[in-house]
Structure formats: C-alpha cells, structure tokens
C-alpha cells in the first residue's frame, strides 16, 4: 500500500498543517472497492479496486491536480473526498473532521462548503431550467432567502463568471458549451464553497473554449481563494492551473508532488509517457506511445500495476509492490528504478 505520510504535524490548536499551510482535505490510506455482479450464485464475490490506499493532502487555497486515464479511479477519489462514496477502508478528513465513516452530522456541515463541476454541462444542467432557476437552485434548497436576495445573489455570481444579468431569464439550452460551463460554475459558486471539485471541466468543450474556462478558474481562485481539486487527463491544462499534482494509475498514486518539479523532472515512467503524449503544434517531438490499455481494476496484476505497459520494466517489477517514496523535498514517486 502506498501510504505517503507527509510531514503532517498536528500543532497545539489541532489544525493540521503541511509546510505551514493549512490542510483542507486529506485522505489516509483511502480505498474504495465496488462489488462486481457475481457470474453464478456460488462464485466468489469480486471487487473493482477503484481506489487503493491513497493518501493525499490538499492545502487551503491551492489547486490540486489529479491526473490519469479514464478508469483509473480519479473521479472515485474525488467523490470520496466529497462524501459521495463511502470508503471501504481508510479515512477522509475535511477541515479536520472525519467525514468518511458515515457520521451524518459531520458530513452535512462539511457539505455546506463543497461543490462540484461536472464534465459535460449540457448533461449536468436541467434543459428545462432558465439560467436563474438553475443558478439559484442551491440557495433555494438551503432556504432562508427572499426573492429579492436570490436575484441579487444570482446577478452577482453571473457577473463574476462573465455572463450578464440579461442572460438570467434565458433557457440554459440557448447557450453554447462554454457558456453552459460558466453557468455550471456560477451554480457551484453561489453557495460560496471553500472546496470545489472540477471533474474534467473542459474535456467536453472545444479547444478554443478550453483556455477561456481555465482562465476563469484561475481568476476565480485569485479572487475568492477557493481550494480546487482539478481532475483531468490533459497535463497541459493541469500545468497551467495547479500547484500540486498527483498522477494516478489503476487506483494508486504513482507520482505526487509540486507541479513544477514533476514537469521539470518527471520520475515515473507513466508520468513521462503522459507528458510526451501531449500534442504540440510542431509535431516533431519524440513521443512515448504506451502499448495497450490499462489492466482491469478487477484483477490487478501482482507487483507494479504499470509493469505490463512499462518500457523499462524489470523482472522484479512483476513481483514486488512499489511504494510511494520520497525522492526530493516535495516529490514522491512509486517507481524504485528512477
């Protein structure tokens, strides 16, 4: 199990800190398994190992990037930090309180400070809603707002995300993909969250719109100091936005550390392949093309999960499990051969 215990000191006031920064979200040895339907009544129950022993710390006000291919468990990890899925084992802390064990009170108060933006705004917004109805819905659910207050809040948040007050009465389907994502962001921001999970917020959009939405996310963070968990398989976008990144492969974190260091000297072979897969305009760069697909998360290969696709796999990789170890001050890697 790759438990990276990072210099987490609990100071006298009980606030968890890392490098003098307050930690907002952290997981310790978090595993999430999902049961697979049995093929016959007497068959052994099998599990999808979506997340396997992950320990991360997200500091207040930082943008934490979570990178990996589809099916590697990055969305499940994010959902676990939001309390959407119960961990099979391990713990999830939000602002110092354990929220993974199913205590409703802790989860409920934590949820007031969390929001999520989804990949495809056309699917996450109700097509019959007007912009006002969609954006004000979280406040209406919370209650305690008069009609006038609601309108003020909605118009303030719309301006913040680059829409105008006159858009309020239009239907959400009248907008283009990029504009719809702005509406989804406004809907998340209206409750003034501290922690915002962005699950591939630009993957469903045109390349020309990517930059607009990323710019918006950056400026919102500067203005409001929100903590982001930014999920993506696009490393170029992550680099622009995030201070810390974690690379995930088949439910485990294979590399973890400050974005600057990882892009400067990627240590894990998978990270190197991911970085080289980012297309550039000149097209001339040498590219590492990974062979095949990721293994099934049901029957994880013994030893290093990446070994079957790794270009520099040794005999030993297939039998010994890799642990996340520190290779520099703020840089952890799960590969022993670096």
């Amino acid at each position: 199990m790759c438990a990276a215990i990072i210099c987490v000191a609990t100071d006298l006031s009980g606030v968890r800190k890392m490098n003098d920064k307050e930690i907002l979200v952290s997981t310790r040895g978090l595993s999430v398994h999902f049961p697979v339907k049995k093929e016959s009544t007497f068959a052994r129950r099998r599990y999808i190992h979506a997340v396997e022993g992950v320990s991360i710390d997200i500091c207040k006000g930082e943008a934490f990037g979570l990178v990996g291919e589809s099916g590697c468990g990055k969305s499940t990890l994010a959902n676990a930090t939001l309390g959407f899925v119960r961990p099979t084992s391990g713990e999830v802390f939000f602002d110092g309180a354990e929220i993974g064990s199913g205590k409703k009170a802790a989860l409920k108060s934590a949820r007031l400070k969390m929001q999520k933006i989804f990949q495809n705004p056309a699917a996450s917004l109700d097509p019959r809603y007007s912009v006002f109805k969609a954006v004000s819905e979280p406040l209406r659910i919370r209650g305690g707002y008069t009609a006038k207050e609601l309108e003020n809040e909605v118009s303030a948040v719309l301006e913040r995300v680059g829409l105008t007050v006159s858009d309020m009465s239009r239907g959400v389907t009248e907008f283009s993909g990029g504009q719809q994502q702005r509406i989804a962001i406004a809907r998340a921001l209206i409750v003034k969250p501290e922690y915002l999970v962005c699950d591939e917020p630009v993957s469903a959009l045109d390349v020309s719109v990517h930059a607009q939405i990323l710019d918006l996310l950056v400026s919102l963070q500067e203005q409001l100091g929100i903590t982001y968990l930014f999920i993506s398989h696009d490393l170029a976008a992550v680099r622009k936005l995030c201070g810390t990144i974690a690379i995930m492969y088949l439910g485990q974190i294979v590399e973890y550390g400050s974005a600057e260091r990882i892009f400067l000297s990627p240590a894990h072979p998978y990270t190197r392949a991911l970085i080289s897969a980012v297309l550039s305009l000149d097209g001339a760069r040498e590219r590492i093309v990974l062979k095949g697909d990721a293994a099934s998360p049901i029957d994880l290969p013994s030893g290093c999960a990446f070994a079957p696709r790794c270009q520099c796999a040794h005999e030993k990789c297939k039998s010994t499990e890799c642990r996340l170890t520190r290779i520099a001050d703020d840089h952890f890697c799960a590969c022993p051969y670096i």
Partner: peptide, 14 residues
Amino acid sequence: AVIGINDKKDSFIH
C-alpha cells in the same frame, strides 16, 4: 488557444 505543455504563458490567449 492550443495550450502547449512547455509554454510559459501567464494567462491563456483566447
């Protein structure tokens, strides 16, 4: 609008 991995743009041009 193509975000390269190595460009040092502070803000994105769009």
